[in-house]
Amino acid sequence: MDPLSEYIRGITRDNPIFGLVLGLCPTLAVTTSVENAIGMSAGTAFVLVCSNIFVSALRKQIPSAVRLPIFIIIIATFVSIVKMIMQAYFPPMYAALGVFIPLIVVNCIIIGRAEAYANKNNVFYSFIDGLGTSTGFLLVLMLIGGIRELLGTGQIVTFDHTLITLPINPSVTTMILPPGAFLTIGSLMAIVNYQRAKKRAKGG
C-alpha cells in the first residue's frame, strides 16, 4: 500500500460518482457552471479530509455501536465551519450553492469514506484517501459543469476569466436546467460503462 496508488485509486477505481455512485444530489444540482462546481468540491473536500482525519484519529475510542451518530456529529461540525466561512467570505458563491452547502452533511461520500476507510486505517492513509476522493469528485463535477455550461451558454466563464468560447452559440438552455443534468450524467455513465466493458473483454 503506497500513498500514491491510494491517491490515484480515489480518482479512478473508487471514483465517488462513477465507481461508487455516491453523492449524486450535489453532483447534479450545483453543476450549472464550472465555478459552482469548483466551489462545491472545495467545500466537500475540506469536510471530507477533516472528517477522515478526525474519525481515523479517534477510531480506537469510538464504540462501534454508536459510531454512525458520532461520525455524523463530527461531519456536521466541519460542515457548519464551511458554511460560516463561505457565508462570511464568499457571499455570491454561498448564494449560488444555497441549501447544498449545509446538505454536505448528508452527502453519502463523506460518511461512506468514514465508515469504509477512515474507521479502519491510520491517520496518514485516511488523509491521502480523503484527498484522492475529493480530487475524483472535483474532476467529475468540473467535467459535468463544463459540458453543461458550454452547451447551455456557449462559453465557460470561471472567476471572471472566459476560458473557452464556442464559435457558434448553441444555447441549448435545457442543458443548464435540471433535465440537462440527468442527460449529462446518464451519457457519461454509459460511456464509462462501455469503456469498462471493453477493458474487461480485452483483459479477460
Partner: peptide, 14 residues
C-alpha cells in the same frame, strides 16, 4: 448492455 441499469434510469429521469 452499457446503457442498461443506471444510465437508462437517468435517461428516463431526463
Amino acid at each position: 448492455s452499457s446503457i442498461r441499469g443506471l444510465p437508462q434510469a437517468f435517461f428516463i429521469a431526463t
